[in-house]
Design a protein around this nucleic acid. Structure first.
Lengths: 208, 208
DNA sequence: CGAATATATGAGCTATCGCTCACAATGTAT
DNA sequence: ATACATTGTGAGCGATAGCTCATATATTCG
């Protein structure tokens, strides 16, 4: 196999050593993003924090953008892991309980590294590089759409696409905003009320 | 009135001439943001586009951040203008029609300079400078909260804060995402269905 | 007019950033 | 042990960014 030009960094890491390097870079990026914000997170700082030279960084990531996109992807992938398992579990549950579980899932998902989640949501420019993250969003839509399809007889839904869009966006936005901007809604008696209300919101919309 | 130090730019523009300068800067910033994105929108480019020297820019805005924040504020203020008028109009309307009007308002509001809206939403880092924009969000919550309070007897709501949060966030997120990422939901027969469905979603949640 | 204030100018400073490349070190296969 | 591929190094380049300041022009007002 001929050596690739360094200007187009290879993406595979075959030896264990290099996999460690890549991991260290991703983790360092996440931590620097949280600590310093996107703008002040320079590639030099990230490499230093990872205990790796700046040259190595550019061996595996062609740009800062790509590096941050990889971090975002890893983060989103963790949330999707939770989501896939939850959808599998509630596949045959009735609407009300399924929705409640999915709302709870969404809250839990937003508790995975919430500081990182905030930076990714608030500071990272949405560029084409995030297409893999968008693919995960589309997967979530697909999962819910399939659930709705299977439970169509319980529902008063005509357009499945519109319904899936509404449900996914609603639950995601509400939990996102609550976790990031309204901590008071997630403590004490209000917390239970919030989950109850979101469940009611979506369930009433769907049910006959 | 003593001349202020240039390191802390004054914020008032007393003569008509300088008001024109400020306006040109805001407009140029908006257009450059749309055309080039946040990162490539340099203050030098903005000043050039406004037909104004870089020095003048820093007479009125202490930083690029402040300049962009002012643009965001002006944009949000326009949307709030629509919102205030709509809330005034539906103050005594029954829930169903009021919600429908508010959903429609939200779609219209997102059609004010949507390209600028997209850049502000997707690329501008959320920093402390945007506090005036946040104040407008809080005002929207307050307006809806007051409406709900006045119509409490028609509603099955216990916690007004939770309900206002849910309604505002839901409608705003759904219209936002639809306008920016799902244009197919806003054309032809799907468009009417979307407004109908969002209205149903919120109205069913609120009503007894 | 002339004095004082308000506004406008733009060359250029300082800082930092993303990124390259020539080379060194480490791992693997024969 | 030798040869070759893989991985790691870091000084420093080129570019550009945000921003300052000494100076010039406009406006206001007695």
């Amino acid at each position: 196999m001929p050596r690739k030009a360094l200007t187009q960094p290879r993406k595979t890491a075959s030896q264990a050593r290099s996999r460690l390097t890549v991991d260290a870079l991703l983790e360092a990026t996440a931590r620097i993003l949280v600590k310093e914000g996107y703008d002040r997170a320079s590639t030099n700082k990230i490499a230093a924090r990872a205990g790796v030279s700046i040259g190595s960084l550019y061996q595996y990531f062609p740009s800062k953008e790509a590096l941050v996109a990889a971090v975002a992807e890893r983060h989103a992938e963790r949330a999707m892991g939770l989501a896939r398992r939850t959808f599998a579990r509630v596949a045959t549950s009735p609407v009300e309980t399924a929705i409640r579980e999915l709302v709870t899932l969404s809250v839990e998902a937003h508790r995975i590294d919430p500081e990182l989640h905030r930076v990714l949501a608030e500071q990272v420019p949405r560029t084409g590089r995030l297409e893999n993250v968008e693919a995960l969003t589309r997967e979530a839509h697909g999962l819910l759409r399939r659930y709705l399809e299977a439970h169509r007889n319980e529902l008063a839904i005509e357009d499945l696409d519109v319904a899936a869009f509404i449900c996914v966006t609603t639950v995601e936005s509400l939990t996102h905003d609550a976790v990031l901007d309204h901590p008071e809604l997630l403590t004490g008696r209000k917390a239970q009320r919030l989950v109850d209300d979101i469940t009611r919101l979506v369930a009433r919309y769907l049910k006959t």
